[in-house]
Design a protein around this nucleic acid. Structure first.
Lengths: 326, 326
DNA sequence: TTGTAAGCGTTATCAC
DNA sequence: GTGATAACGCTTACAA
């Protein structure tokens, strides 16, 4: 920067002002400086800049690869979110640091902030980290979460209305006159648990309905299939199944087929996410669709509010049932 | 850091040495410094550190959201790669910066390096950027690419053997005695084009085989479906179809069904990637599997070699045909 | 084995 | 409007 200043016959602070679009500089000076900078392919050293400034203009995004890898990744769902966040951060000139898998406890997250790497976090999927997130909030870290929205939590989250999703599935099952329902999903994840809660709520209003629950450890295709097969070997088949994802629903269809059972004849089946192949699967999957294209922008917006001292409220995005064959 | 130095009765450089695991410090001093640092929740300011050092220990990863978003993301494939890269970088204490969508031309990439944000790039999927990548290589930027491997390119790439994948599909079609082949995919992407080349090679050795090509603009489900329907309205149906992805293959099944055609009776069909639902789709999809779990580590390894002045060679990962119903 | 001094490239402060 | 100066927090070179 010193060189540019010399070549343009100005001082360093002036160059800095030009590069930061300060309104305080003479139009003529500005153009001269810009020209010289361009000619010499000058690019500002962002580390020096960040060292001097209060903010880092960097957001760490936490993906739960742990839950989604392990075999093969489940629905591409979470990555649409990532694309949205990436876009929204870019618009605001914020860098996106993808959080390393080694970041697990509260302290390592806090360290990332105190070492001035990132200003705050966006968690995509709270996974099984709720206690950690509570502690992180208590420690005063800036972050927002995509996942299950619980107004009682001390942090800001954005998510689709999972409880409503569960209710919609429940109402569908009632309409199909199913009595032995099965919920498949790892309810340690709060968004998954809230769907279960919604389902149970509807069940509770119908005395003759019983809801069972099958836990799947990993959110991948193969493990869901295996758990489902194992379950069917030990239990009488349910007449309605609500799966935590469409990929899981596909695995469930395969598992039931092993026992000569087909949807919708032998059981009703509802998936989640409305992934593209769901409509063309045989049988075409009934599923719940989440409204996600705005999620990235909303998450970024709320985090920026927090970084500016605000206290944005959590918010819910709509959810709707898409009835197909199953 | 000054504070810690004072409290531990040493100088700043000594604190620095301790924190960087320098072997030059007395064991006793080291422990005292570490204790004080821990007690005060001290974390090094990484911006100051990066400002002072030659390397940034940051790698920018470029995802082609442009190709994969647009509707809904195609196969989750590219994100398994991302998980692998994230893991491998973390092991080497390298930060992962997710490249903003605004980074498109050579200059903006070079700027990211000259502004000392990242040391180099990992491109996941070369997309339609080959000319840009060539220029970037010419400009001396450090980067590696996942995608189609062409030894003639002036940069280091890692990818599965796409040409072999095409040949495998071709041999399958020969065995099924198909004569009118159709390749579906955007051959502006080199990895997609190489599969086409492999297919055509096999076709060329069989005089009576004709290969047609259907271009799809966006790699998403819906656009593939629409293109396929439009094509079938204007052309006699092929008796063998090779799709650039399994998701595309599923779209193709749906499109053919509109015309009363089913695989494998009316046509042979081969997908790509072996995504989890492929085996349970009706009909079960024949597909090509790529060996990807090592890809992330290999990409990172090669980039590190480049950053240390080396010139690693491009390399191919194995590919195999998985024959199912179609 | 440890300390002193200088400098990395920016921006904030304050003077002009 | 613009410039001089200091300061951000660290590491390197060199001295002790």
């Amino acid at each position: 920067m010193g060189d540019i200043a010399l070549l343009a016959n100005v001082s360093k602070p002036t160059v800095s002002r030009v590069l930061n679009n300060s309104p305080l500089v003479n139009e003529e000076t500005r153009e001269r400086v810009l020209r010289v900078a361009r000619e010499h392919g000058y690019a500002i050293n962002r580390n020096a800049q960040k060292l001097r400034q209060a903010r880092n203009d960097t957001v760490a995004v936490v993906l739960d690869f742990g839950s989604h890898r392990a075999g093969r990744i489940a629905d591409p769902f979470i990555f649409e979110l990532l694309a949205g966040v990436s876009e929204a951060l870019s618009v605001r000139n914020q860098d996106l640091l993808l959080s390393p898998p080694s970041l697990t406890d509260v302290q390592s997250h806090l360290d990332l902030i105190s070492s001035r790497v990132a200003d705050g976090f966006i968690f995509l999927g709270q996974g099984v980290r709720e206690p950690m997130l509570r502690d992180l909030a208590r420690a005063g870290a800036a972050f927002v979460v995509w996942g299950g929205v619980d107004p009682k939590e001390p942090y800001c989250s954005v998510g689709s209305d999972n409880r409503l999703g569960g209710q919609l599935a429940g109402e569908l099952f009632v309409k199909r006159q199913a009595k032995r329902w099965l919920y498949v999903g790892n309810i340690a994840h709060s968004e998954i648990r809230m769907r279960y809660d919604g389902l149970c709520e509807v069940a509770a209003t119908h005395g003759d309905v019983h809801v069972a629950h099958l836990d799947v450890e990993q959110m991948a295709y193969a493990s869901t299939y295996q758990s489902m097969v194992a379950w069917l070997q030990k239990n009488p088949p349910p007449d309605a199944v609500f799966a935590f994802s469409d990929t899981a629903a596909i695995a469930i269809v395969a598992a039931f087929r092993e026992f000569g059972l087909e949807a919708p004849t032998d059981y009703a089946l509802c998936g989640y996410n409305n992934i593209p192949p769901a409509a063309d699967f045989t049988p075409a999957l009934t599923t719940i669709e989440q409204e996600t294209h705005l999620a990235g922008a909303i998450l970024v917006e709320k985090l920026m509010q927090i970084l500016e001292g605000g206290k944005p409220k959590s918010s819910l995005l709509p959810t709707r049932l898409i009835v197909r064959q199953t």
